[in-house]
Structure formats: C-alpha cells, structure tokens
Design a protein around this nucleic acid. Structure first.
Lengths: 185, 185
DNA sequence: CACGATACGGAACGACGTTCCGTTTCCCCT
DNA sequence: AGGGGAAACGGAACGTCGTTCCGTATCGTG
C-alpha cells in the first residue's frame, strides 16, 4: 500500500472534470440528474463516468466528501466549546440539517435501499454516526436527554424529516421538534 | 349530475380486476410496481389501465380510499372517547402511522411533487388535514401542546418519518418522539 | 340482427441506467 | 526518438420503464 500506482494524466484530468460537472449538475437538477447530462457537461462519454465511479453513490460521495468530513470534525469541537452537551447536540444537528437540505434528493438517496446507493449509505453512516453517538451519550450522561435513543435511528429520523421538507415545512423547525422530544422532563 | 350513464359491462369488470390486481401488486412490490405487471396480473393491456386511471395516483387513491376514509372518521371518534385531547392525538397519529408503514412507498409517493401524484397528494391532504387540525386545536386549547404547529406540517413530518423507517428504526417510536416534542413544558 | 359507440390490446416511442468493445491516447523502455 | 502494449475513452446498443395511439374486438340498443 506504499505508493499509489499513478494513474494516467488524462484519467486524472477527466476525474476532475467529472467531479466539477457532477457538483454543478447536482445543484441545478438534484442528485438524480441523468448520467448522460453529467457526461455531457464534463465533455466525456458515459462509459468514462462508470469507469471512474462504478455506482452513482461513489460519485455523490466523492462530491460531498469534504462537507461530510467537515460535519464529522465539528462534533468534538462543538462538544468542547458549548456550555451544555444539549446545546452542542442542537447545534450539530442544525449543521447536519443544513447540509442535507441544500442537496436536493440527497437524503432521499440516503434512505434508498437501492443497492447502488449502498456505498453512499455506508460512508455517511460510518463517518457521522459515531460523532452523533458521542454527543448523544454526553448529553445523556448529563441527564439532559433520554438515554435510550441510538445515534443511528436519530440520524435516520432527522434525514427523513429533511427529505420531503420541500415547501411544506421548515426542516430545522420540524427537526427541532424531534430534538425537543428527546429531552427529559 | 343525476344518473351516471352506465358504463359497459366489460369496462366495469376490468376496473374491478384492475383494482384487485393493483392492491395485490402494491403489497408485494410497493406502489412503484411497474404498470405492465399490474396489467399482466389483471389480464388486461396497459392501455386499459390508463383509460380507467389516467395517472398512477388515481389508481393508488382508488385502492386505498376506504382506509383513508376510515382514518378520517376515527378522528372525531377518538376525540370524543379519549380522556384528553393529547391522548386522542397520540392514538390518531399511531393509526395514521400504521396505515402508512404497511404500504411500501406510499409515503414516498405522497411527498413526491412528481405531478402525476398531485391527485393523490390532494386527496390525502383534503381528507386528513382537517381531521388532524381538529384534534390539534383541541389539544392546544387544553394547553397540552404548542399552539404554533400547523396540521399540514405535522402530517408531512410524520409521513416523512414513516418513509425510510425500513429496518433502521421503529416508526411509531420515532413519531412518538416528535409528538413528545409538541408538548408544552 | 346490424350497426354505432365504447372499450380493448399491445406495438411503438422516448428517456433512462448500464454494459461492452473497437478505437484512441498515453507512457515507459529501449 | 519512437514504437508497442497497457490504460482509458466514447458512444452505440440493450433492457426496462412510463406513456401514447390506433386498428380491432366487444357491447348493447333499435
């Protein structure tokens, strides 16, 4: 695993174009944008997409990896800087919500058991669930929230609330309601 | 609008087959089951489906109309028979959740702004939102829940929580959390 | 029974995801 | 420098899906 066997120059170039094209296509048409359109924007053939990113999930992960990382790192930071674990939880969840709602159909894709999204699923969860768990147990230890809620289910619940938010309700408000329900009387 | 101009016998027969086939197909493959499969199960051509049910939503509405009606009627009943409006709210929401989770992809379809689901959307909302609103205002008047939550947003929130429940969490439990968040301290 | 109205079936079309392979491009080695 | 094999490319082709359309079959009435 020492040194990665350098890929060809055109391959690296195309991968970059693809990432840029996908990022731009995602914001205008959601993560469900047709493969052909991403290919067209990047000026490559569809085959090239599949070679670099075998599943759509791989592409989505690659595009959003940076932001997911940011969200994961914010967890410990918030926990250290906030007055109470509950405040940290609220702030972190808000951050997570903001991330989800700005990406059309991302949460949608996350819940899908479509198989082709399995990678996406796994990546997001592996990275974020432990962070959420850390904050959650801190808050539970402080007696601020119920101790019987798993981070996994909380994150799925929040994710699902963000899916359909559309214009029907304010996702942050609705999620806040859910978080309020966590509180111990 | 006096008397409906009797349809042909074969047309009525096919409509029945179609409803039965769709109902059975929905439970085994979700409401996203391919049109061709419903047609095959009913022993008719695809054209026949579109003649009877111009959009998929019309078919779904027809299949589930009875259960939606039941849910709508239960609202006033619960309100009258329960000790507190909040208990009625809890019970009614539970009923709604049970209805949603047993229909794969129904909530999914409900949130979709796909256009072809507009009818479905409208029907469910027209029928259930007023009922939810009635219970909600009763509970608010009794000082049991926050008065600033609209029935529409609550129902969407609950619906979205039911969408991805899958095996990740118990939808009733998660929805209960949301309802708990409604409570006034 | 015959004839118009009504309804039927499934071929046909366009959009999409995905695969596959003939062709092009790159990069290393001599 | 330049040649050859590996790596990567592009887009045609295939299967699936929703939807439309119209020639054909069926119904029910006079």
């Amino acid at each position: 695993m020492a040194d990665a066997p350098r890929k060809r120059a055109d391959a690296r170039r195309n991968e970059k174009s693809l990432l840029a094209a996908a990022a731009s296509a995602f914001v205008t048409s959601g993560v469900d944008v047709p493969v052909r359109e991403i290919a067209a924007r990047a000026g490559v053939g569809v085959g090239t997409i599949y070679r670099h990113f075998p599943t759509r999930a791989d592409l989505v992960v690659a595009v959003y990896r940076h932001q997911v990382e940011e969200c994961a790192l914010a967890g410990p930071t918030l926990l250290a800087s906030c007055d109470s674990p509950h405040e940290a939880l609220t702030r972190w969840i808000d951050m997570f919500v903001d991330f989800l709602v700005t990406k059309h159909g991302l949460a949608q894709a996350l819940k899908s058991d479509n198989g082709s999204f399995a990678t996406l699923h796994a990546y997001f969860l592996d990275r974020l669930v432990p962070v959420c768990g850390q904050i959650l147990t801190a808050a539970a230890s402080a007696g601020e929230v119920r101790p019987d809620i798993e981070p996994l289910e909380l994150m799925f619940g929040v994710g699902n609330l963000c899916i359909g938010a559309g214009s029907q309700y304010d996702p942050r408000r609705m999620v806040a309601l859910l978080i309020a329900g966590l509180r111990l009387a």
